[in-house]
Design a protein around this nucleic acid. Sequence first.
DNA 1: CATTCGTGGAG
DNA 2: TCTCCAAGAAT
Length: 350
Amino acid sequence: MRDAEITVCNVAEAMLAWYDRNARDLPWRIPPGDDTPPDPYRVWLSEVMLQQTTVAAVREYFLRFTTRWPTVSDLAAAPDADVMGEWAGLGYYARARNLLKCARVVADRHGGTFPDTYDRLLALPGIGPYTAAAMSAIAFGRPETVLDGNVERVMARLYELHTPLPAAKPVLHAYATALTPRNRPGDYAQAVMDLGATICTPKSPACGICPLRDRCAARLAGNAAQLPKKTPKKPKPTRRGTIYLAQRSDGAWLMERRPDHGLLGGMLGWPGSDWAETAQDAPPLQADWTLLPGEVRHTFTHFHLILTVMTATLPADSAPDSGFFLAPDQFRPSDLPTVMRKAYDLARSK
DNA sequence: CATTCGTGGAG
DNA sequence: TCTCCAAGAAT
């Protein structure tokens, strides 16, 4: 029993010592040793952006968001379209919708101050078990246990757990909880995630320079790169569709706001057909449509998409059956999700 | 517990 | 070209 406690204690100490020397410089991070109090708004925003998204992709979005909306109340007061447009390209757009919902709850019902406990954070839109734990630890110094993909990998290797994910999650969480220190829990959480991102990587982990190399069961067994095991994924089907880019003679584009739920929910887009196994026509209005040479290829989380693009020029008095016309000075291609921007780029290149 | 939900970089 | 996968949440 005494040995186990010493081992547990040493893991956290080894991780914090490693973090003190190797912490990456990130825009949302307070460096170890810096006693500046963390801003819960910035911790929250970064954690939501980092959900299933790489540090490299998040960096510039985080800087733009915090420059444009320095506080949660600023964000809460922003028009929906502005926030969705700023999020465009980052993916998983339900995050942006929930981000706004959460900001408005915090601004309207909490006086602009985030709650500081795991349970109350968990109750907010877009904050799940991981983000509630990360905010508790990083923003509020509480010894909560974070379990993200990095921590899962580090724990599976440290304890050489061969049970495949996601079934292994409860056991991995128990391992992670046993290691979480009362001291500097925020730095510790970031240390384990940094380790997973830079040393204990999925494919070829750098075990030789790992601060836990002497006590990692998988490293000792020589199978670190084979862990964690995962249940195999389904193959992605291919769907097809047609998308319509119409520009009025005054330059205005015919566009639509996608419904809040479902794929690309809440985002700006071009009108078009459903996306199904076989392509189909669904022009938004009667016009002299021209088939654009080429096609748009895009891969979502669970299917490949091939889009045929049609273009048309419409008379100045044209009125849409659905959607709306967006004047050229109000149309920013950067407001589009990537698949819609690809269609725009294809049309513009002709 | 399984499915839905983006994107871009790495290998 | 193709698969994997990254600081997950909601349903």
